[in-house]
């Protein structure tokens, strides 16, 4: 005997499990995100355009990882990566744009 209530109930259970799984980043997700942030950060140092906002984000990501808060670690590492990437864009742009800054 299947009535509508059952369907709703099952649907709810499914969404609940799905949302719990989706929110759950694993340790290896966190490790991966931190590693790719680190790589972009290293590149930004190499081109001489390191932002000082990146280091603390990576440090916070590692800290979150230590307390097993993998979702936070991924989020922080992604912000670090995004900013390191922007600093690389800046470096590339300034290769030609710097000339516009000369005194006129």
């Amino acid at each position: 005997m299947i009535n509508i209530k059952h369907v709703v109930l099952i649907f709810c259970l499914l969404t609940l499990t799905a949302s719990v799984f989706a929110a759950k980043a694993t340790k290896s997700d966190a490790e991966e995100s931190i590693q790719s942030a680190q790589q972009l950060w290293d590149k930004s140092i190499a081109v001489g355009h390191e932002w000082n906002t990146v280091k603390p984000l990576v440090a916070q990501a590692k800290q979150a990882m230590e307390t097993n808060d993998f979702a936070a670690a991924v989020a922080l590492a992604n912000r670090a990566a995004e900013q390191a990437e922007l600093s690389l864009v800046q470096a590339e742009h300034e290769k030609t744009n710097w000339v516009n800054n000369l005194p006129k």
């Binding site: 709703v8 709810c12 609940l16």
Partner: peptide, 18 residues
């Protein structure tokens, strides 16, 4: 049960958005 489930869902959703 339904009520309970909805409440739990709401909690999960709000807590996962920072």
């Amino acid at each position: 049960t339904l009520k309970l489930l909805f409440t739990v869902m709401l909690l999960v959703v709000t807590s996962s958005t920072v």
